[in-house]
Design a protein around this nucleic acid. Sequence first.
DNA 1: TTTTTTCTTAATATTATTTTAAGTTTACTA
DNA 2: TAGTAAACTTAAAATAATATTAAGAAAAAA
Lengths: 222, 222
Amino acid sequence: MKVLIIEDDKILAKTVEQCIKNKYDVDHAYDGEEGVLYAKQEIYDAIILDIMMPIMNGYEVLNTLRNNKIYTPVLILTAKDSISDKVMGFRSGADDYLVKPFNREELIVRLEALIRRSQGNYTENIIEFKDLKLDLNSRKAILGKKEIILQGKQFDMLEYLISSKNTIITKEQIFDKIWGFNSETTANVIEVYASGLRKELKKIGYDKYLKTIRGVGYIWSE
Amino acid sequence: MKVLIIEDDKILAKTVEQCIKNKYDVDHAYDGEEGVLYAKQEIYDAIILDIMMPIMNGYEVLNTLRNNKIYTPVLILTAKDSISDKVMGFRSGADDYLVKPFNREELIVRLEALIRRSQGNYTENIIEFKDLKLDLNSRKAILGKKEIILQGKQFDMLEYLISSKNTIITKEQIFDKIWGFNSETTANVIEVYASGLRKELKKIGYDKYLKTIRGVGYIWSE
DNA sequence: TTTTTTCTTAATATTATTTTAAGTTTACTA
DNA sequence: TAGTAAACTTAAAATAATATTAAGAAAAAA
């Protein structure tokens, strides 16, 4: 992970670097113009930006970046503590704003939060087995460019089996989980669904991982 | 846009609501448990969370949510101003932390920044999918020179679906988000609206992206 | 107020999924 | 290796979910 510090005070920049260098690779830019140049590479996971700088101030830097469609998350770190400054910072497109003198810990956790959010690895909800991915958000089963279409309970069953891989799942467990233990349905449905599932899985060659344990149930394993 | 306030002090909750109600639909939860319940719907664009609450405190709420893969952005708003509290908040998965007494303006801009980042929506209120542009200001759906006219809730529904593309949205979520969960309306309206929406989308050939996931809800995807 | 638009309801039509059941195959046991 | 029990497969029937329509109610605009 790389963080860019745009700060004209070299001593302060060093201090900030000290705080975070355990966790991040740090680059410095010592004025706004240089900062923009660096940031345009779009290789940084976050930018720590000072406001009061010669030539080009922090607001200008930020506006320039956003106008150039550079959306790297920015944390403003400045001595300017008035509300109007903060508002101006956020309106220019900042993601966070911390006032000097700052606390090391707080800087670190704010930076982490920012990166965590902006990486967006938040929204994914995927179960994997080998190259097969079950996307729980879209309920799709995808293998490379192929996709197999599973109807509701088929998907539920595959999800259950894969998420319990290498463990025998009894038919009763499947039944209770997917149909509900007070369902009136005949037990045979499970076999019907296992069959349908295998048929679909065969299209991508993954039917071999769904094995029957006679007298007990099923297992998903290599 | 909907914001959830989780705060046991009703007067303060009202104050917060006053600050932001011009821009957001606001729901309240008056304790942590209720807050979790509400948040689990995943219909909020952000959550404003108090820490000191009976039964379940803010940290617990946040941990519960994140453990349940609910990644709605959270701004902690609390009187607890020590660094260790802040650190704890961020480590639990908060995205921002504001200390009471807070400034109205600051709350607003921080909330905006949070939503902007989490939605990845930096451009001026326009949502795009392929060549279709939804202008959230004029509430028009435009494709090249063509424009389709959508009535209020049709537009809301399309906006919701496209902004959550590739994720199944349950009918309940649509209902709660657009009609509000205490609405008396029959659930069938959603189907009626889906139908009407498809009819309009067909004019520009985009109806194929609105898919029904039987037994679950709808999804917008390729 | 009148007119227009949007929203809601409810009845009907359509479609997809689920279940049943009967025949077939497979695996185990005596 | 024949007999038996369990599991598999298939397709038709039953059921449940969704789509569509149109008419009436409510809300907004004129």
